[in-house]
Nucleic acid binder design. Sequence first.
DNA 1: GTGACAGCATGTTAA
DNA 2: ATGCTGTCAC
Length: 751
Amino acid sequence: MPDPGDLLADLTDDQRAAVTHAEGPLLILAGAGSGKTRVITRRVAYLLQQGVRPGSILAITFTNKAAGEMRQRVEKLVPGNRVWVSTFHSLGARLLRQYADRLGIDRNFTIYDTDDRNKLVKDALAATGMDDVKFSPDRLGGAISKAKNQLLTPNGYEKTANDFFTQTVAKVYHGYEKRLRAANAMDFDDLLYLPAQALRLNEEFRRDLDSRFRYVLIDEYQDTNSAQYEVARRLSVDHPNLCVVGDPDQSIYKWRGSDIKNILDFERDFPAARVITLTRNYRSTKNVLHAAGALIDRNKQRKKKALVTDNPAGEPVRVLTFDNGLDEAEGVVVRIKEAVKAGRFRYRDHAIFLRINALTRSLESAFVKHGVPFQIVKGLAFFERKENRDVLAYLRLVANPQDNVSFLRVVNAPSRGVGKTSLDRLVAFAGREEMPLLAAAAQVARIPEIKGKGASGLRDFYRLVTELRTKLDLPPHELIDLVIKQSGYEKMLRDSDDPEDADRLANVSELVTAAKQYHDENPDSKVVDFLEQITLASDTDGWDEAADHVSVMTLHSSKGLEFPVVYVMAVEEGLLPHERSLGKDEDVEEERRLCFVGMTRAMKELHLCHARMREFRGQLNYAIPSSFLGELPRDSSVEHVDLSMTRNVARGAADEWRAKVAPAARDWADTGVRPFIPPKKPEEAASIVVPPDTGLAVGALVQHDEYGLGQVTDLSGFGALRRVKVRFPGHGEKVFVADKAKLKVVGRRQG
DNA sequence: GTGACAGCATGTTAA
DNA sequence: ATGCTGTCAC
């Protein structure tokens, strides 16, 4: 056991107070870069050192990677002590499997991701007979997810449904749940919702777990949802040693159900709570903090809190203006390359953050072109490839024969002569008999409408899966190997003429390798564990921190990380803040927090980039600098650098751009950028698509083929995503895609 | 009835 | 780029 002094020696008074806080609820409001990970880790170590048994400590982190790191650090501080550290979702999955008998569930359940969920939603929607409803499965699934996050059962939700959409959701929700249970599957929300319900309704279960986990620590508490809150709260009744750490300014997951009130109301929920605020920042320069602080200060729904640091002022935050998105990508890559060449930084010191994944593509080519090593941090991408999803579907079906989504995915891959018609009949039969599709396939003889190739194909498939089921105890990689050989999947790819199939074959082999690696690291693991690990992996879990490359990720993924040099790209209206937030103050504030999170990842240098033109879905459009740029301080902490003039071709375009969009971006122009006014070059500017003036404006009167005369009440988005809202007397408000809608402007009201 | 193909709409952030 | 739908030849 180390001396307690060792654990506490290098901490500030506030940090020490948080670490040594004995019993009772504790709220740590930890500003960005204030060393919160360190505080939690030390606190766990300190508790162990005080004689708390490792098994009675539960620590919850935001990613599996963070969980692994914390487990290791604790073990290093207090050797021989393994504590339970996991994410909320992994915790839920583990509890559900561990207590399956008590909770009346089958412990071999499959975890469905969003794609799987949407397939079931689609099926449930079709079964309601409301096929003509134009709500997408994704949207309905999202609503169901939100309902589960708020612990609403289908019946509970139905009672609150008060319009056509929510009533549709209620109907679909019923059917969706039925299908999930029939498939012995859990969606992501179930992993939180079911434990939360069990803790709420089953007092004995609750009491057992409460005394099992006497000390509960939760990181990133500002991003917990109602189900997670319920779990935390119910585990802290008899032993209210709940320690939560978070920062309301970094709450960026409201869209997936997180409720910032959980952290804001902690003191109300636990009146005895001690509150410790950490505002000293150890990460960033004064300039970075000053700029980020000015930005976040614009949020109205916010308790004022200023971060302070003893670090030097450092370089100014730089706002970089590029002519277009390709210039931006290359400009950033070249700057990084030069910084490395000059010996100022290594590649791994750099990170590039983006608002949306789609923007990584142009970066990729710039990296390749300049020979700069990079990693796009999106761990799941590999497992999301079609071929790997197929192979994993086999695995899932073998592990859980009720998994109908997986059945449908692979029953005819490779082709076994089971087409749509045969499948429809099989599905109808299985529905009548209330049995899983695989079981129905076994009884294909009872379905006279399926004959010939279809019948024999289903029989073969059933035999294949049954055969593989006897091998379920093999290590995951060996079972995968059997799957791809015996199913004929490997042969199908090898015999194909399509050159892409060679890549697919390589990916499948790589999947075997990944499974083997997983099994080497977790020798006791079985197929179900491997599948679970893949499904619950976070994007950053696959990130290789140690390698010397530039890291590229979304702003959301960047939470919790830090880098010496940070570039945030495409800081433009419509992207950051994202257009979907426009007009909704709460959502814009979340976008601002997102920007704040990105900025505060930077230790030494921070660059915010934007381009004047950006290609989006094949269309080159003018881009307006983000209003957030206009909210940065107007002092020496921020420097504006216009790099667009370095390209001759840009000159005419830059001029026209200014004329078109500068008035709309007055905020930005006021920041002190000195515009470069080049001579006109119309022949070059001609390649720029100027969105035609459609006459659509709020107040305009429009004619629609079906609804008749209406008035425009709202416009949002731009380019292909531009939406127009129209109020029709007698039909209410309708939203159209501006490009596509058959709307004729017939006049306008003054306005 | 099956499967290959083209044409189509679709697209924020994520466990 | 992807998945879904409709069309067409076997």
